[in-house]
Computed example of a mutant assay.
Amino acid sequence: MKRLITKSLLASIASAICVLAGNASAATVNEYFVDHGDIGIAYEDNELELHYHFEDGFNGVGPEVEFEPNEVYIRVSDAAKLTTTNDLGFLGTTAGDEIWILPQGNTGSSGAGSLGVPFVGLATEELDSTDFISVDLSMTNFNGPGEFALWQFGTFGPNVFFQSVDGISSADNLNLGIGIHDHANFGFTEEGIYEIELTATGNLTGGGTVVDVGTFTFAVGNVAAVPEPGSVAALVSLSLVGACVRRRRKS
């Protein structure tokens, strides 16, 4: 009888730990504030998966790691703030306005590395060309205090992929090749919290598509993110609980 009670007690404790771990994990949000990280797209068990991929560690510290979109928010500090010298129609700004930009480059005086801000990439390196022809990454919902745009500098001016200033439409789309890693400018017009819903649509070589949706959060300026950030250590400790905690994706 004592042995049965012990087993029952252990089972109850294990179950409680799993519940607590699940709740704590869901509430843990980590601030990505510096160094290189990617918004990545993977394919596992016949499902497309949007995620964060930090090849050089989270904020440049620790081992390679991946997170779900809701486990991280991106800090766009005032180090990314600048005063425009030209009108930027895709952001709805005029010369002299202040905006925040996470730059597409990492070097030079205006690069992310010099500014000490996140260097955010877009990656399909985890996808195989035997499975996919391409991936369409679209902005399908947006919430923020100002406007947002994603663009690259081109030979004849900016190539704009996403812009909230004219509403959300099918034009807010970026077609990505397979096995690529690229960078773009992430621009914001006001301080505050921005929630950007991205939909990844994988175009399969055998025909048809697979889809995943994720919301990526940016904290622009000195605003506090909600919920309060946790720590990577907390997530690591939760992973020790065992089978009740979700396995991280393989990089």
Rank of each mutant, 00 (worst) to 15 (best):
V135M: 05
V135T: 01
V135H: 02
V135L: 06
D136F: 04
D136V: 14
D136H: 02
S138I: 08
S138N: 12
M139D: 02
M139I: 04
T140L: 08
T140N: 00
T140K: 09
T140Y: 04
N141V: 14
N141T: 15
F142N: 05
F142L: 08
N143H: 06
N143G: 13
G144P: 02
G144W: 02
G144A: 06
G144L: 08
P145S: 15
E147I: 04
E147M: 07
F148I: 05
F148T: 00
A149Q: 00
A149L: 02
L150V: 11
Q152I: 05
Q152P: 01
Q152C: 01
Q152S: 10
F153R: 13
F153H: 10
G154Q: 05
G154L: 03
T155W: 12
T155V: 11
F156S: 08
F156M: 09
G157W: 08
G157D: 10
G157K: 10
P158A: 14
P158H: 10
N159H: 12
N159W: 09
N159S: 15
N159P: 10
V160L: 08
V160M: 06
V160C: 00
F161H: 01
F161M: 07
F162P: 00
F162R: 00
F162T: 00
F162M: 03
Q163N: 14
Q163A: 08
Q163P: 12
S164D: 06
V165E: 00
D166L: 13
D166Q: 15
D166G: 14
G167F: 00
I168E: 08
S169V: 14
S169L: 09
S170D: 13
S170E: 15
S170L: 14
A171Q: 07
A171R: 07
A171N: 14
D172I: 00
N173D: 12
L174D: 02
L174C: 06
L176H: 01
L176C: 05
L176K: 00
G177D: 15
I178C: 01
I178H: 01
G179S: 14
G179Y: 15
I180R: 05
H181K: 07
H181Y: 06
H181L: 04
H181R: 06
H183E: 09
H183W: 14
A184W: 02
A184M: 13
A184C: 09
N185A: 12
F186V: 07
G187S: 14
G187V: 12
F188L: 13
F188I: 04
F188D: 01
E190D: 12
E191T: 13
